[in-house]
Amino acid sequence: MDENTDPQNASPGRIGVTYRLIAVVVRAASRVLARREWRGGHHLPVAGGYLTVINHNSYVDALAYGHFQYSSGKPPHFFVKASLFKVPVLGAVLRATGQIPVERRSSRAADSLRAAYEAVRRGECVAIYPEGTLTRDPDLWPGQPKTGAARLALMTRAPVIPVAQWGAHEIAPPYARGGRRVRFRPRPTLVVHAGPPVDLSDLFDAGLTVPVLREASNRIMDAIVALLEEIRGEQRPPGNGT
Protein backbone atom coordinates (compact mmCIF):
# COMPACT_ATOMS: atom_id res chain seq x y z
CA MET A 1 0.00 0.00 0.00
CA ASP A 2 1.43 3.38 -0.95
CA GLU A 3 1.91 6.09 1.67
CA ASN A 4 -0.89 8.18 0.19
CA THR A 5 -3.49 5.62 1.27
CA ASP A 6 -2.05 5.09 4.75
CA PRO A 7 -4.50 6.45 7.35
CA GLN A 8 -1.62 7.76 9.45
CA ASN A 9 -0.12 9.83 6.62
CA ALA A 10 -0.73 13.11 8.43
CA SER A 11 1.08 16.36 7.84
CA PRO A 12 3.95 16.87 10.30
CA GLY A 13 3.11 18.96 13.31
CA ARG A 14 5.56 20.22 15.95
CA ILE A 15 8.79 19.61 14.02
CA GLY A 16 11.93 21.76 13.99
CA VAL A 17 13.11 23.69 10.93
CA THR A 18 16.24 21.56 10.46
CA TYR A 19 14.23 18.35 10.54
CA ARG A 20 11.78 19.80 8.02
CA LEU A 21 14.55 20.82 5.61
CA ILE A 22 16.16 17.39 5.76
CA ALA A 23 12.79 15.75 5.26
CA VAL A 24 12.15 17.81 2.12
CA VAL A 25 15.42 16.60 0.59
CA VAL A 26 15.00 12.95 1.61
CA ARG A 27 11.40 12.74 0.49
CA ALA A 28 12.15 14.31 -2.89
CA ALA A 29 15.10 11.97 -3.47
CA SER A 30 13.21 8.86 -2.41
CA ARG A 31 10.33 9.59 -4.76
CA VAL A 32 12.75 9.73 -7.68
CA LEU A 33 15.11 6.92 -6.72
CA ALA A 34 12.82 4.29 -5.18
CA ARG A 35 9.30 2.98 -5.00
CA ARG A 36 7.57 2.80 -1.61
CA GLU A 37 5.29 0.31 0.06
CA TRP A 38 4.16 1.52 3.47
CA ARG A 39 1.66 -0.17 5.74
CA GLY A 40 0.48 -0.08 9.33
CA GLY A 41 0.79 3.64 9.96
CA HIS A 42 -2.46 3.46 11.92
CA HIS A 43 -0.56 1.53 14.61
CA LEU A 44 1.57 4.60 15.43
CA PRO A 45 0.00 6.36 18.46
CA VAL A 46 -1.41 9.80 17.76
CA ALA A 47 -0.83 11.08 21.31
CA GLY A 48 1.91 10.40 23.83
CA GLY A 49 5.44 9.08 23.57
CA TYR A 50 6.30 5.64 22.28
CA LEU A 51 9.11 3.42 21.01
CA THR A 52 9.55 1.96 17.57
CA VAL A 53 11.77 -1.10 17.17
CA ILE A 54 13.18 -1.84 13.71
CA ASN A 55 15.30 -4.45 11.96
CA HIS A 56 18.62 -3.15 10.59
CA ASN A 57 20.09 -4.47 7.33
CA SER A 58 21.51 -1.43 5.54
CA TYR A 59 23.36 1.79 6.29
CA VAL A 60 20.52 3.69 4.60
CA ASP A 61 17.48 1.93 6.04
CA ALA A 62 17.12 4.70 8.64
CA LEU A 63 16.17 7.03 5.77
CA ALA A 64 13.40 4.71 4.56
CA TYR A 65 12.00 4.17 8.04
CA GLY A 66 12.57 7.85 8.94
CA HIS A 67 10.51 8.97 5.94
CA PHE A 68 7.68 6.64 6.96
CA GLN A 69 7.80 7.81 10.57
CA TYR A 70 8.12 11.51 9.73
CA SER A 71 4.92 11.38 7.70
CA SER A 72 3.02 10.33 10.82
CA GLY A 73 3.64 13.80 12.24
CA LYS A 74 6.09 12.64 14.91
CA PRO A 75 9.72 12.33 13.69
CA PRO A 76 11.97 9.64 15.17
CA HIS A 77 14.87 10.19 17.53
CA PHE A 78 17.60 7.60 16.98
CA PHE A 79 20.49 6.47 19.13
CA VAL A 80 23.65 7.69 17.34
CA LYS A 81 27.34 7.11 18.10
CA ALA A 82 28.58 10.02 20.21
CA SER A 83 31.65 10.43 17.99
CA LEU A 84 29.44 11.50 15.08
CA PHE A 85 28.28 14.53 17.05
CA LYS A 86 31.86 15.83 16.77
CA VAL A 87 31.84 15.74 12.96
CA PRO A 88 31.47 19.26 11.47
CA VAL A 89 28.02 19.98 10.03
CA LEU A 90 26.80 16.44 10.74
CA GLY A 91 27.08 17.00 14.47
CA ALA A 92 25.11 20.23 14.22
CA VAL A 93 22.38 18.44 12.25
CA LEU A 94 22.20 15.59 14.76
CA ARG A 95 21.85 18.02 17.66
CA ALA A 96 19.28 20.16 15.84
CA THR A 97 17.11 17.14 15.08
CA GLY A 98 17.25 15.82 18.65
CA GLN A 99 19.14 12.60 18.02
CA ILE A 100 20.47 10.81 21.09
CA PRO A 101 24.25 10.36 21.53
CA VAL A 102 25.46 6.97 22.70
CA GLU A 103 28.82 6.57 24.44
CA ARG A 104 29.43 2.85 24.69
CA ARG A 105 31.90 1.37 27.15
CA SER A 106 32.19 4.56 29.19
CA SER A 107 30.92 5.96 32.49
CA ARG A 108 28.41 8.01 30.50
CA ALA A 109 26.82 5.03 28.71
CA ALA A 110 23.66 5.37 30.84
CA ASP A 111 23.17 8.99 29.74
CA SER A 112 21.65 7.88 26.43
CA LEU A 113 19.07 5.76 28.22
CA ARG A 114 18.11 8.68 30.44
CA ALA A 115 17.86 10.99 27.42
CA ALA A 116 15.64 8.49 25.61
CA TYR A 117 13.48 8.06 28.73
CA GLU A 118 12.95 11.82 28.93
CA ALA A 119 12.15 12.04 25.21
CA VAL A 120 9.43 9.41 25.56
CA ARG A 121 8.04 11.14 28.64
CA ARG A 122 7.85 14.37 26.60
CA GLY A 123 5.68 12.57 24.07
CA GLU A 124 8.35 11.91 21.43
CA CYS A 125 9.09 8.83 19.33
CA VAL A 126 12.36 7.05 20.10
CA ALA A 127 13.50 4.61 17.41
CA ILE A 128 15.67 1.64 18.36
CA TYR A 129 17.43 -1.15 16.50
CA PRO A 130 17.14 -4.02 19.03
CA GLU A 131 20.24 -5.73 17.61
CA GLY A 132 22.28 -2.60 18.29
CA THR A 133 24.06 -2.91 14.94
CA LEU A 134 23.65 -4.13 11.37
CA THR A 135 22.64 -7.75 11.08
CA ARG A 136 25.46 -10.14 10.27
CA ASP A 137 23.16 -12.88 9.11
CA PRO A 138 24.02 -13.75 5.46
CA ASP A 139 20.31 -13.83 4.58
CA LEU A 140 19.65 -10.57 6.43
CA TRP A 141 17.40 -11.98 9.14
CA PRO A 142 17.62 -10.12 12.47
CA GLY A 143 20.11 -11.46 14.98
CA GLN A 144 20.00 -11.81 18.74
CA PRO A 145 18.44 -8.72 20.35
CA LYS A 146 20.19 -6.77 23.07
CA THR A 147 18.19 -5.70 26.09
CA GLY A 148 18.29 -1.91 25.69
CA ALA A 149 14.93 -1.59 23.95
CA ALA A 150 13.28 -3.88 26.49
CA ARG A 151 14.77 -1.96 29.42
CA LEU A 152 13.52 1.36 28.06
CA ALA A 153 10.10 -0.13 27.30
CA LEU A 154 9.67 -1.47 30.81
CA MET A 155 10.97 1.75 32.38
CA THR A 156 8.59 4.00 30.43
CA ARG A 157 5.68 1.56 30.01
CA ALA A 158 5.19 3.29 26.67
CA PRO A 159 3.77 1.53 23.59
CA VAL A 160 6.36 -0.49 21.66
CA ILE A 161 5.59 -0.53 17.93
CA PRO A 162 7.42 -3.19 15.88
CA VAL A 163 8.51 -2.10 12.41
CA ALA A 164 9.99 -4.26 9.66
CA GLN A 165 11.73 -2.77 6.66
CA TRP A 166 13.08 -4.35 3.49
CA GLY A 167 14.62 -3.06 0.27
CA ALA A 168 17.20 -0.57 1.53
CA HIS A 169 19.82 -3.33 1.33
CA GLU A 170 19.36 -3.29 -2.45
CA ILE A 171 20.70 0.28 -2.41
CA ALA A 172 23.46 -0.20 0.14
CA PRO A 173 24.05 -3.81 1.25
CA PRO A 174 25.52 -4.27 4.73
CA TYR A 175 29.30 -4.60 4.80
CA ALA A 176 29.34 -4.24 0.97
CA ARG A 177 28.43 -7.89 0.47
CA GLY A 178 29.95 -9.28 -2.69
CA GLY A 179 31.88 -6.04 -3.23
CA ARG A 180 28.71 -4.19 -4.24
CA ARG A 181 28.53 -0.44 -3.89
CA VAL A 182 25.59 1.92 -3.58
CA ARG A 183 23.25 1.57 -6.54
CA PHE A 184 19.73 2.61 -7.56
CA ARG A 185 19.25 0.40 -10.63
CA PRO A 186 17.05 -1.49 -10.93
CA ARG A 187 14.84 0.95 -9.02
CA PRO A 188 14.30 -0.64 -5.58
CA THR A 189 11.09 -0.81 -3.56
CA LEU A 190 11.46 0.38 0.02
CA VAL A 191 9.03 -1.55 2.17
CA VAL A 192 8.15 -0.39 5.69
CA HIS A 193 5.44 -2.15 7.72
CA ALA A 194 4.42 -1.27 11.27
CA GLY A 195 2.52 -3.71 13.48
CA PRO A 196 0.38 -3.52 16.61
CA PRO A 197 2.08 -2.78 19.95
CA VAL A 198 4.02 -5.58 21.62
CA ASP A 199 2.24 -6.62 24.81
CA LEU A 200 4.67 -6.35 27.73
CA SER A 201 2.10 -5.41 30.37
CA ASP A 202 2.57 -8.60 32.39
CA LEU A 203 6.26 -7.71 32.81
CA PHE A 204 5.87 -4.12 34.04
CA ASP A 205 6.04 -5.02 37.73
CA ALA A 206 8.33 -8.02 37.41
CA GLY A 207 11.57 -6.06 37.93
CA LEU A 208 14.40 -5.36 35.51
CA THR A 209 16.06 -8.72 35.99
CA VAL A 210 18.00 -10.55 33.29
CA PRO A 211 15.24 -13.15 32.66
CA VAL A 212 12.57 -10.44 32.43
CA LEU A 213 14.64 -8.30 30.06
CA ARG A 214 15.41 -11.32 27.91
CA GLU A 215 11.74 -12.30 27.72
CA ALA A 216 10.75 -8.75 26.74
CA SER A 217 13.57 -8.59 24.19
CA ASN A 218 12.50 -11.85 22.59
CA ARG A 219 8.88 -10.72 22.35
CA ILE A 220 9.98 -7.51 20.67
CA MET A 221 12.19 -9.31 18.16
CA ASP A 222 9.56 -11.98 17.46
CA ALA A 223 7.09 -9.24 16.53
CA ILE A 224 9.60 -7.66 14.12
CA VAL A 225 10.43 -11.02 12.55
CA ALA A 226 6.75 -11.85 12.04
CA LEU A 227 6.32 -8.64 10.04
CA LEU A 228 9.51 -9.29 8.08
CA GLU A 229 8.38 -12.82 7.25
CA GLU A 230 5.17 -11.37 5.85
CA ILE A 231 7.10 -8.88 3.72
CA ARG A 232 9.55 -11.48 2.42
CA GLY A 233 6.96 -14.20 1.99
CA GLU A 234 9.09 -16.76 3.81
CA GLN A 235 9.84 -17.88 7.33
CA ARG A 236 13.06 -17.25 9.17
CA PRO A 237 15.03 -20.53 9.28
CA PRO A 238 15.09 -22.24 12.68
CA GLY A 239 18.06 -21.12 14.76
CA ASN A 240 18.49 -17.74 13.12
CA GLY A 241 18.58 -14.93 15.66
CA THR A 242 18.39 -17.25 18.66
Rank of each mutant, 00 (worst) to 15 (best):
21 L>R: 08
21 L>G: 09
23 A>K: 08
24 V>P: 04
24 V>W: 12
24 V>S: 08
25 V>Q: 04
27 R>M: 11
27 R>K: 13
29 A>C: 13
30 S>V: 15
31 R>Q: 13
32 V>M: 11
32 V>P: 04
33 L>V: 07
34 A>Y: 08
37 E>S: 14
37 E>C: 12
40 G>Q: 05
41 G>C: 04
42 H>G: 08
44 L>D: 07
44 L>Q: 04
45 P>D: 07
45 P>H: 11
46 V>L: 13
47 A>S: 14
49 G>P: 04
49 G>A: 07
49 G>S: 05
51 L>H: 01
52 T>S: 14
54 I>L: 11
56 H>I: 03
57 N>G: 14
57 N>S: 15
57 N>Y: 11
57 N>K: 13
61 D>S: 06
62 A>W: 13
63 L>P: 02
64 A>C: 09
64 A>K: 06
66 G>T: 01
67 H>I: 13
67 H>F: 07
69 Q>H: 10
74 K>L: 07
75 P>A: 06
78 F>C: 00
79 F>S: 02
79 F>T: 02
81 K>E: 08
82 A>E: 15
82 A>R: 15
84 L>M: 14
84 L>N: 09
84 L>D: 05
85 F>C: 08
86 K>W: 11
89 V>D: 06
90 L>I: 09
92 A>M: 11
93 V>I: 15
97 T>N: 07
97 T>F: 05
98 G>P: 02
99 Q>E: 07
102 V>S: 01
103 E>A: 15
104 R>W: 10
106 S>G: 10
107 S>H: 10
108 R>T: 15
113 L>Q: 09
116 A>G: 10
117 Y>K: 10
117 Y>F: 14
117 Y>C: 01
121 R>C: 04
122 R>G: 06
123 G>Y: 06
123 G>S: 10
126 V>N: 03
126 V>S: 05
127 A>Y: 01
128 I>D: 01
128 I>A: 02
128 I>L: 11
129 Y>E: 00
129 Y>L: 02
